[in-house]
Design a protein around this nucleic acid. Structure first.
Lengths: 174, 174
DNA sequence: TATTGTTATACTCTATAACTATA
DNA sequence: TATAGTTATAGAGTATAACAATA
């Protein structure tokens, strides 16, 4: 059993005043989410949804989504990458990467080249068009992030980045 | 055009040394993700994946998922809530809420009660079993978060929470 | 007309098992 | 036998259009 000294007693105690929601009241700000607001994961999900939606909008002109964008960037920065390495780097399963690469290959943004020394594997490489689209997309995403994070100063951004890395590492605990 | 003074020149300049990935090298840490690491969204996605996976594991014994858990907590803390209000609070579309509530109702954790003053609407309320399960789940999730964030001090957690809120608000920009 | 909840549908992301061809 | 990539499939989350009942 963990210590859990910060444990809230949940609904029983939180609901001192049950809030009496009016039938015609559509004001979402009135909904009591005090219990959920105690969880960092709740805030992370909501913030990430915003980032994700904005990223999707930003990538739309390039006909890229988050996954196709990530794959294209990693292939461009790591020519010769194997699919299994890319899947591991992207934290997705190998089968799910296949369709992503199919799409990028069909659009002639990347190439799958047979590796002579291991004929099971493919070496992934960007085409010229792929590199050019990648550059444009990265610039657009950079601008989109700066716009979205304009109210976060450099210290805050660094704090968030450090925290996210710690959380990610924390996955390895028992 | 945004100022974008932090813009990286992307692959063209990042790839000074193309990294020469060896055919037998499966070490993911060797993959150059310098371009992506510049984006807070990249770190947020990876960290959120960890949180999400851990939450799912935590909720498994209660046969809850993130969405059913969130709905149950909000209904428990806001008895009388309408479905449209809940959907708005959860930031999901009304049709997608229906199946979530169907599941909670089938398990007799919540009730859909007709509102006399507006016979189109349902007032959502937890059953006794729903309240009890909610309490247990909230306690479990609290413990899970404390475990996952044990390397983040209170200042760091507050900084992240503040940043997430700012990002969420940032969605309202033009 | 507008709104509440609903159905139907489609797309994306995710996860697993099983296959092929190589090693 | 093990690995790289693939196929097939299923579960979840998300988004939109259209409908019935009600306002």
């Amino acid at each position: 059993m963990p210590s859990s000294k910060n444990v809230l007693q949940s609904s029983g105690d939180v609901m001192k005043k049950p809030m009496e929601i009016q039938p015609t009241n559509n004001d979402v700000t009135r909904v009591n989410d005090a219990t959920l607001r105690q969880f960092l994961g709740y805030h992370m999900k909501r913030a990430f949804n915003v980032v994700q939606a904005d990223l999707l909008r930003t990538l739309k002109p390039f006909e890229l989504r988050m996954l196709t964008y990530t794959a294209l960037v990693l292939i461009t920065d790591n020519p010769g990458l194997r699919q299994s390495q890319l899947a591991a780097a992207m934290d997705i399963e190998r089968p799910n990467l296949v369709v992503i690469l199919d799409e990028l290959e069909r659009r002639e943004l990347i190439l799958r080249e047979r590796v002579p020394t291991d004929r099971r594997a493919y070496a992934l490489a960007p085409t010229l068009a792929g590199r050019q689209l990648c550059d444009k997309a990265v610039a657009a995403v950079t601008a989109h992030e700066n716009r979205l994070l304009e109210h976060l100063d450099q210290d805050a951004r660094a704090a968030v980045e450090a925290a996210m890395k710690l959380i990610e590492k924390g996955a390895g605990r028992g």
